[in-house]
Design a binder for these strands. Structure first.
Lengths: 254, 254
DNA sequence: AAGTGGTCTAGACCACTGC
DNA sequence: CAGTGGTCTAGACCACTTT
């Protein structure tokens, strides 16, 4: 971008720095679904030339998007849209660990649990579901229930609520995979940018006690999670009830 | 740094990029206590000249340290060592929120709780304390117990264990302030770089029930926290038992 | 006006990957 | 070997704060 057209597009006060506008332009393409997870982006120089800015400015935008977990950069190969199955991306949103894990606190979880689906129903969103997912009264949702187990035992019961409008291809026969965020990205072009969680301690409900083989009245960790897509909309409401006798939730604050 | 002395100090293969070595040099000064929290660092150009590198390289190091929460940059003023009382630094390590808070999930906690200290004793580290804090059998620790309350009610009971060797100025008469990380930084030059937490659900112990006015058998959130200083050593072991009927733990994963 | 951090550019060279 | 990202430099200019 020359001095002339920079000053013409933003006369004096530029609302946003150039690299931020470049970043937004790239994020917009991700939202539009132009680039699915795993896709290789054009090179820094190609993007720079296309947008009329310098390569250093594109680099700053790409670096920030990489820090946000949206992109993965591989020296000598290229810049790619992050995939849920990328190493260390897999565990980005998974914080449960066995108490007896020999690893240090900072180490990643040893294993990613598998899932057994218990139910899969479609219905009109309840008022609470409307509020959480930002839906209207007539909107429909898919509701899934599953039990997740690690290599030792069942560790949690989980409920997933998805707005039908964002997942039009789901039907009664759809087999949700174990890694649902990979499914959201590859099948629906929905990239989960971040998740917000609320954690509480609760007493295990009787039906969960039997499903997980717990003692009656056992304390459990309840995790209320909302997954937010790149466009800022909540695309999944998840409630997990995790056993707390052998599993804990690890967190690192920086 | 000229091409000549760069190639002489790192003949061909440089183990670390230059900005990383600059960053480590600056972190080392923080560890040594040369710069207390709130201190203004030399300007980018001054650091660059002193270390014989370009200003852009210093900038990259400072930007990373800012991202780690170690520094605070203020345009037109300078770069400062982060203080625990800096806005938004205050809540960096505090994740508890009232259930009825009208704020969105992403909003910061409404209030920082105050503390009532229950006990303050010095003793030889137990084997568990030795393991957690990396101490020897004869090492001593300070143990504090406190109850923390927000504007409504007591919300948690908390135990703090500190190695005496890192906090030589503490004695029986020391009044720990409410914001202990500020105290660590200003009084002992200990900068907490990050904390690691393990969360579990437990049944409230009888003595906690009475201290917080809970119902017998209530589920509580147990938070096992280790605070890690810049030098990588654990300087505080904290165990919190938080009421779960009106308070939750919020987390955002990116 | 002087000094600070923030943005942007242009170009050089290095390190890694894949053909 | 060509193409990619990664590092480093030098310099220009902008925005903000303090004197």
């Amino acid at each position: 971008m020359t001095a002339a057209n920079r000053s013409s597009s933003t006369p004096k006060l530029q609302a946003q720095p150039l690299y931020a506008r470049v970043q937004q332009a790239l994020v917009d393409r991700l939202i539009a679904g132009n680039w699915r997870p795993g896709t290789m982006l054009p090179s820094e120089f190609a993007i720079a030339e296309e947008l009329g800015v310098s390569q250093g400015t594109v680099r700053k935008a790409l670096d920030e998007m990489t820090a946000l977990g949206l992109l993965v950069r591989k020296q000598g190969r290229g810049t790619f849209v992050a995939e849920a199955e990328d190493t260390s991306i897999l565990f980005r949103f998974y914080r449960l660990t066995r108490d007896d894990a020999s690893t240090a606190l900072a180490a990643p979880a040893a294993s990613f649990p598998d899932s057994t689906y218990l139910s899969q129903v479609c219905g009109t969103a309840t008022s609470k579901e409307q509020e959480v997912l930002g839906l209207n009264a007539s909107d429909k949702v898919w509701r899934f229930e599953r039990v997740r187990s690690d290599h030792v035992e069942p560790i949690l019961w989980e409920s997933l609520v998805l707005p039908v409008s964002r997942f039009p291809s789901i039907d009664e026969t759809t087999q949700l995979p174990n890694n649902v965020y990979q499914f959201y990205g590859n099948e629906h072009g929905i990239i989960v940018a971040r998740v917000e969680e609320k954690l509480r301690a609760v007493i295990a409900p009787p039906n969960i006690v039997s499903a997980l083989g717990l003692e009656s009245g056992a304390p459990m960790l309840e995790i209320d999670r909302r997954a937010i897509a790149l466009d800022g909309q909540i695309v999944e409401w998840r409630t997990s009830l995790c056993r707390s006798d052998t599993i804990h939730y690890r967190n690192e604050l920086k």
